[in-house]
Computed example of a mutant assay.
Amino acid sequence: MYYSYSAVIHRLRFMASKPHHLLPLPNSAATTVAAKRARTMATDSSSSSSSSSPIKDAFTKYTQYLNTLNEKRERVVKASRDITINSKKVIFQVHRISKHNREEVLEKAEKDLKAVTDQYISRLVKELHGTDFWKLRRAYSPGVQEYIEAATFCSFCKSGNLLTLDEINATLLSLSDPSLEPLQINVLDYLLGLADLTGELMRLAIGRISEGELEFAEKICRFVRDIYRELTLLVPHMDDSYDMKTKMDTMLQSVMKIENACFSVHVRGSEYIPLLGSSDPSSFLLGVPDIEL
């Protein structure tokens, strides 16, 4: 765009008539002091104590809390491992049961289980005093599940009944300080322990069949089948329990193995007559009781 000579002269006159406020040259000494003040304002001791001190204290407290929680978690994991190892020993002891040594084996197993409760479960209870149980549940859940498996295994072999969650938690009350919240096993860990129990009962049933104790194997079969049926109705309503849904598949396999073993004895009973001590091996199914599946 081209402007005429008169238009340019008019614009220059307008700019000359407009007041312009020129900034004075900065004083180097004043500028330096102002800059220093600006830099030291955030780190001044008087202002720092009022602005950053609460944040620093809160961060320090949170760091100490995390360190304490991590140390406690390590101790809880160690206690859970000890519970797992010694509970497995109780389960192995129960597997030695037979019709000849039943009372002796169960008495030894109950004594070992009480030692697990008094020595290792009590240590876990003391570690969890004053804390939120759910925060450390993953740390102690494997040991608790193994303990439930051992306790219910002993109870079934002794009385033929299922040890309930309330009965297990009642035994833990004596280990807790009455002034603090006692450790109580939650429902999920109890059900996970029951799922593992069916696997041990399957092994026990197969072993009892090989020893000729068919009635006991049949009783185990009905018991495991009842547990599986009840859990089949319950598990679909549980929220996000991947472990439980995975163990249901294993539980079904255990039920099928016991049923197949009992059915094989019922159908092919003549092959088991020498094992059962029959006086007449030529007789069919002599000495083999009827098994209702």
Rank of each mutant, 00 (worst) to 15 (best):
L191N: 12
L191I: 09
L192V: 13
G193T: 12
L194E: 14
A195V: 11
A195M: 15
D196H: 11
D196V: 09
L197S: 15
T198A: 13
T198C: 15
T198F: 03
T198D: 11
G199K: 09
G199R: 09
G199W: 06
E200V: 10
L201R: 03
L201Y: 01
M202P: 00
M202D: 10
M202C: 03
R203H: 10
R203V: 05
A205S: 13
A205Y: 03
I206C: 11
I206G: 07
I206H: 06
G207C: 08
G207T: 08
G207W: 04
R208P: 00
I209P: 00
S210L: 12
E211I: 00
G212S: 01
G212Y: 08
E215N: 15
F216Y: 01
F216K: 04
F216D: 03
A217T: 01
E218R: 13
E218C: 15
E218M: 14
K219Q: 07
K219M: 03
I220G: 00
I220Y: 03
I220M: 11
I220L: 03
I220H: 02
I220R: 05
I220C: 08
I220K: 04
C221W: 07
C221Q: 09
R222I: 03
F223L: 05
V224C: 03
V224T: 05
V224S: 02
R225M: 09
R225N: 14
I227M: 05
I227G: 08
Y228L: 11
Y228K: 02
Y228P: 06
R229S: 14
E230Y: 15
E230V: 15
L231W: 05
L231Q: 12
L231H: 05
T232Y: 13
T232D: 10
L233I: 00
L233D: 13
L234E: 06
L234W: 07
L234H: 08
L234Q: 12
V235G: 01
P236A: 02
H237F: 01
H237N: 03
H237K: 11
H237Y: 05
M238L: 06
D239M: 08
S241A: 11
Y242E: 14
D243W: 01
D243M: 03
D243I: 01
M244E: 03
M244I: 05
M244Y: 01
M244R: 02
K245I: 02
T246I: 02
T246Q: 12
M248H: 00
M248C: 01
M248P: 00
D249E: 04
D249A: 11
D249L: 06
D249G: 02
D249R: 05
T250M: 01
